[in-house]
Write a protein that binds this DNA or RNA. Structure first.
Lengths: 214, 214
DNA sequence: ATTAAAATGTGAATAAATTGACATGAATAT
DNA sequence: ATATTCATGTCAATTTATTCACATTTTAAT
């Protein structure tokens, strides 16, 4: 059991926001920051920020605060941003292409090697320098290119089948955009992006905004 | 103060998942479901499901469970899915186009009327029947077409400026895909989709998966 | 040097969320 | 009809998350 694994997922999900603001601070040339200042930026309380960071060790210094670069680097390590992974996308529609184009991807250490689709009209096309290939070549490609991350940007009907193929090919992590829950073994990790759920929440907020003024 | 507003956001964020599974159950012709069966589907505990639903009233019946269609309809009402809103997208790149193409959108009651961009090479093109227009015509379009939802799918550098324009034009809600926090007045609601944060979490899981086996 | 201000790390207190347990009433079987 | 099973709604208990408060240490000012 490693130390990090006992930190609650609630805490972990706040780390990317800290990391993002620290990136901005570095760009601005700020070298030092207090939990109170970070609180003003992120909206989390200063106390919570200190508690969160202390789960991983004492990165700060009394009377001084936190060194921006150090904290940024430590959070990057905790989040695994120093590792590099090869990825593929199944589903070369707009969403798949958007992801292949997405620059933020490489900041997280992921490199999209190829997109896959069944539609003959897109097979062979290139997004930047990333080729769209036939689904039939997916398994071989994964095995030959040390691909560890599989992305799913297809309709939900195909998602589980693709996940199964990914698992069989030895993939370690799946980034799933299809609005369905995938079944995979314990040794494969899944992170879902739920666009429709996000939209429903927006709808809820809108409804409540109106009702509270009615 | 309306009743719903005191229900915690933690509960609200689970509702879309219930709604999604209920939609599937309707498609399968299932008319009745217990909290225990819903638990097996969603992964939440039966007790939690009963607690969640009771925040909004007694939808179930002892000894029977919940009527699938009734519950589905009630959750839809709570989430505001019965309301209809016009939306526009600023940023007609792949992501903006993916959203304009996205069918799940209309299930939530949102209709994308137009996309906007500054790039002359895409202005005038159509995604399905949705035209891409010049940014300069955005404010007028919003005011003339009763647009209440603004979507942002541009790089983060432009996001705040677009949000400001949206607010000035009288928009009520913003669905933001840019990786930055937007400042808007209290009477405008924001729902963020944080693709990069999601990716960082995937990275964290991957790192921890490996360490726990090392 | 000395003092005052700043700000962490942390244990305790509080608040929020989840789970457990069961009385009650409905549905089903006999 | 009666008995048995089922399953909700809800209160209480537990667990988890957040906030408070402050001793301690460092920095910065005089």
């Amino acid at each position: 059991m490693n130390r990090d694994s006992q930190v609650s997922i609630t805490v972990i999900r706040r780390l990317p926001k800290y990391h993002r603001y620290l990136t901005e601070l570095i760009e601005k040339g700020v070298s030092r920051i207090s939990s109170q200042e970070l609180s003003a930026l992120t909206g989390f309380t200063a106390s919570q920020i200190r508690q969160d960071l202390n789960n991983f060790g004492g990165f700060g210094q009394q009377g001084y605060g936190y060194n921006v670069e150090d904290l940024h680097r430590e959070l990057g390590k905790i989040l695994g941003l120093d590792a590099k992974y090869n990825a593929v996308v199944v589903g070369a529609g707009n969403l798949g292409q958007a992801i292949a184009n997405y620059k933020g991807f490489e900041d997280a250490g992921f490199k999209v090697l190829s997109l896959f689709d069944r539609n003959p009209r897109v097979i062979g096309l290139r997004i930047r320098d990333i080729e769209i290939r036939d689904m039939d070549t997916l398994v071989d490609f994964i095995e030959e290119n040390n691909v560890e991350i599989g992305i799913i940007t297809t309709p939900k009907e195909n998602a589980q089948e693709i996940a199964d193929t990914y698992v069989k090919s030895g993939i370690k992590g799946i980034w799933n955009f299809a609005p369905t829950d995938l079944l995979v073994p314990d040794n494969v990790v899944i992170e879902n992006v739920r666009l429709n759920e996000s939209l429903f929440i927006l709808s809820y907020f809108l409804k409540n905004l109106e009702e509270s003024r009615a």
